[in-house]
């Protein structure tokens, strides 16, 4: 593409070498910490206690990873995260699709005002509702439950906004043809339009899942019991004081183990994830 070529400052001439070197150097800075963590995770704890420089030469071991399988709460936390993120994703898709169709295609009293109010919700940061939410959930005895971890996320306006935009972009003639084909409003939604929104569903689903999987603040204050930790909170709880930790290798293995699923997911769905995340940012 001539476009790509001419906007790039990485081209043929001498300046380009410098740029390329900078890109590589920066990439090394990006990767080095990760390699360091992986290296540590492959060493015996005792060896690391003596000298962390031992990372650079064998012997390597996977003992730490085997130890995770036996002892760690990581599995419970992964399960919790799967339930919370999966549940939130499914419910978000359902709610956002219904609402997006409603806002984009149906007319009801106060629709436009309501939509603007929902959009204004995008500007409300989580912290502004955190304390009151915590109190309400306390009264309803929802803390330390899956519902308690899932429900707040269902109010996020982003999905509704995204789906509304997507439904609006589908030609209205399709609805009209279906109306003439004797389809009810719900049939139009379910059989005609929803199948066309699959790309948006993928974007929204991935974004929601990722966001929920990495969410830290609400699970930290709502799921305070160890067995209700999500992976993010659980991992945080293990690393409070590792300066004098004997189990450094084990800790690193746990980190790699916890980070791997999402990185693998990223590798598989790279294109969708990038679209989802930058789409979310552009609003």
């Amino acid at each position: 593409m001539s476009n790509a070529r001419s906007t790039s400052i990485m081209g043929r001439e001498s300046g380009d070498r410098v740029v390329l070197l900078l890109v590589i150097a920066l990439a090394l800075v990006m990767v080095a910490p990760v390699l360091w963590v992986i290296g540590l995770s492959l060493k015996h704890n005792a060896e690391l206690m003596a000298n962390t420089n031992s990372v650079f030469y064998p012997p390597y071991t996977i003992t730490n990873y085997i130890n995770i399988l036996g002892t760690s709460s990581v599995f419970r936390w992964i399960l919790n995260s799967l339930i919370v993120s999966g549940g939130l994703t499914i419910f978000t898709l359902v709610l956002a699709s219904l609402a997006g169709y409603g806002f984009a295609r149906l007319n009801f009293p106060g629709r436009d005002i309501l939509f603007i109010i929902v959009l204004l919700g995008l500007a409300v940061p989580e912290q502004a509702v955190l304390i009151a939410r915590h109190q309400i959930f306390g009264m309803l005895k929802l803390h330390n439950s899956y519902q308690g971890l899932i429900l707040p996320g269902l109010s996020a306006p982003f999905g509704v906004f995204l789906m509304t935009q997507y439904f609006r972009a589908i030609p209205k003639e399709l609805d009209e043809a279906a109306l003439l084909d004797n389809a009810s409003r719900f049939t139009i939604f379910w059989k005609v339009l929803l199948p066309l929104t699959v790309p948006a569903q993928a974007t929204l689903g991935i974004f929601t899942f990722l966001w929920s999987w990495n969410d830290y603040l609400w699970p930290l204050i709502s799921g305070t019991k160890k067995e209700m930790f999500t992976l993010t909170v659980g991992m945080a709880s293990t690393q409070t004081n590792f300066a004098q930790s004997e189990g450094l290798g084990f800790l690193m293995a746990q980190a790699v183990f916890a980070g791997a699923p999402i990185l693998i997911l990223y590798l598989f769905f790279q294109k969708y994830i990038v679209t989802a995340v930058s789409g979310a940012a552009v609003r």
Binding site: P33, V37, L210, T232, M235, A236, Q239, L251, I262, I273
Partner: peptide, 15 residues
């Protein structure tokens, strides 16, 4: 960008 804050901080603390 897809990592959680916990993993990120763990990595950088060990750095």
């Amino acid at each position: 960008s897809v990592l959680s804050v916990t993993i990120v901080t763990l990595i950088w603390r060990i750095v």
